[in-house]
Amino acid sequence: MPVPSFAEFREQSLAQGYDEVLERIWAADSVVESHTHPFALRAIVVAGEMWLQVEGHTRHLVSGDQFSLGHEQAHAERYGPAGATYWVARRNPAED
């Protein structure tokens, strides 16, 4: 599946109700232990490779692969020898 441009990904994400879109670049062999985020997200890997562990299952992701995580969903990340870049759309919770 071809990777959309950043502008296309951003436009699609904003149309789906996400409120911020950014690029994340990870250094080679980075490891991020289990953690959560105060937002839901959808992302697409655009370079390199990563392993995403969620609920005891690990996915190997490469360019073109997409993933999503719910608000406060615990996960861990590991990045390959070339690192990885992904674009991420975040949906922050509404403030009261």
Rank of each mutant, 00 (worst) to 15 (best):
G70H: 04
E33F: 00
E72F: 10
V3A: 06
I44S: 01
D19G: 09
L52N: 09
P4N: 07
F6R: 07
P2N: 12
L41K: 04
N92V: 15
F67V: 07
A74K: 14
A27N: 05
H75V: 08
R10E: 10
V32D: 01
Y79D: 02
V21K: 07
E20H: 10
H75K: 13
V62Q: 15
G83F: 04
A74V: 15
E20S: 12
H60K: 14
S63I: 05
P4H: 08
R59C: 13
A15S: 10
M50D: 03
D65A: 14
P2R: 10
R78C: 11
L69A: 11
R78Q: 14
E77A: 13
D19A: 09
W26D: 02
I25S: 00
T58K: 14
N92R: 15
V45N: 02
V45L: 11
Q73V: 05
A15W: 02
L22F: 12
G64S: 11
G56A: 14
E95V: 15
T58Y: 05
I25K: 02
V21W: 02
R42T: 12
F9T: 01
M1T: 12
R90L: 12
I25N: 00
F6P: 00
H35L: 12
A82L: 12
E95T: 15
Y18E: 03
S68I: 07
Y79R: 03
P2T: 07
Q12N: 11
A76V: 07
H75W: 10
S13I: 03
T85N: 02
W51M: 08
F67D: 08
V31Y: 08
S63Q: 13
F6Y: 13
H75S: 11
P81Q: 15
L61E: 06
E33W: 00
G83M: 09
A15C: 03
F67E: 07
A7T: 04
R10L: 01
Q53T: 15
Q53S: 14
R78S: 14
L52P: 01
R59M: 15
H60C: 14
G70C: 07
P2W: 02
Y86R: 09
A74Y: 13
H71T: 03
R78H: 09
G70W: 01
L61T: 02
S5Q: 09
W51F: 14
A27I: 09
H37A: 13
G64I: 06
E49H: 14
G56V: 14
F39H: 09
Q66A: 15
H57Q: 15
Q73S: 13
R91M: 10
M1S: 13
Q16P: 00
I25T: 10
A89M: 04
E23Y: 04
T58P: 00
P81R: 15
R10C: 05
A40I: 03
I25C: 00
A28K: 10
A47G: 11
L41H: 01
S68Q: 14
A82K: 06
R91H: 10
R24F: 00
E72V: 08
S30R: 06
M1A: 12
I44W: 01
S5K: 00
E11R: 08
Q16C: 09
L14P: 06
E49T: 08
